[in-house]
Amino acid sequence: MTVDHEPVSTADGGEPRFSTWTGKARGWALRRLPPDKLLPEGQPSYVSSWIYVFGMGAVAALVYIIGSGIVLALNGPTWFHVSSLGRFINSTHLWSVELFFMFMVIHLWGKFWMAAWRGGRVLTWITGMLAFVVSIVTAFTGYLLQTNFDSQWIAFQAKDALNAVGIGAWFNVADLGQILMWHITLLPLAVAVVVALHVVLVRMHGVVPPLEAAASDAQLSSATPNPATESEHRK
């Protein structure tokens, strides 16, 4: 098969120029997030603190939340009352949620004290906060789905706040069907999309440099080569 529209290189920058919508979209994506940024083999030298593991920890916990949630959803919300395997899967769902929030909160406050929104990273901060808020609502609907005493009481108590702001009819905490729909479809989808967007933004903009970093710092004035670029050059 022959291709009619080859990308045309610009005379000055040498970057490919595309003529189709698809090609332009690809060019835009490649400029914003080239493969070595998306899947890096090196990070700035200042990325060396335990605080950096909690973002990845939250993503790892989310993997277990989704996995255990799928098993629970396939067996129905009352399965864990009567099955020991169901009870164990329910436990993994609970504890991965607890870890998810713990990691996410540490990650959030770490990023706050780094003022990580600097240098055009404001959308990364906002999507992180959005992920936190949507996760809180998702977890709340999960507690309502336990079909036990706890969920009964949460439904009775939580209705007041929702009714007071006029959304109690559409978010009826005592309606198992409505809450199941929120918990296993719309809200997890929202969490997944916001978290994915957040991770892509982190990769696009890179990890924020230290406050007070100056051009005269040893780490900036005596730059060592990027291992990723180096390995490419060696080929």
Binding site: L39, E41, Q43, P44
Partner: peptide, 10 residues
């Protein structure tokens, strides 16, 4: 970032 890098495996 144009400074020193460390190896990192995502």
């Amino acid at each position: 970032w144009g400074g020193t890098l460390r190896e990192y495996d995502l």
